[in-house]
Amino acid sequence: MKTVLTCTVNGIEHTVLADTRDTLLDLLRDRIGLTGTKEGCGNGNCGTCTVLMDGATVNACLILAFEAPGRDIITIEGLSDGGRMHPIQEALVAHGGTQCGFCTPGIVLSAKALLDTNPQPTEADIRHAIAGNLCRCTGYGKIVEAIAAAATTARES
């Protein structure tokens, strides 16, 4: 069954024809065309589909599209400023905190939610913030270093 849904993504209001069974992830990728948000496990374990909903990280695969109207949703596409990468993205590049890159959009948004509320996180805070984001390429050491560096850069600027 089809339904018309209106929701705000990255500050832009979208009115789209959706399937009533769509998840927020389906809505973002297949109806709006924002494919930066990835589907990994599809059941809330891996965090690759992490987006911000009213400022808090959520797994888009665990949310019905019906729940999106009235919420402020930010995806990875909403972070770059006119094509310039967000400082968290720059830090991940500089520290080699990415390999295949599939988990990276989710990691960036989890890091952003952390730094927005806790500008001076400890290593334990960072590890807790990304506990719900699984990376299968590598260890988490460089990712943690990159987020710590992004926090330092943000405090100094």
Binding site: G44, G47, T50, T57, V58, A129, G132, N133
Partner: peptide
């Protein structure tokens, strides 16, 4: 309960 994303929901 889960990670931060799950706890937020």
């Amino acid at each position: 309960i889960g990670g931060v994303q799950v706890q937020n929901r």
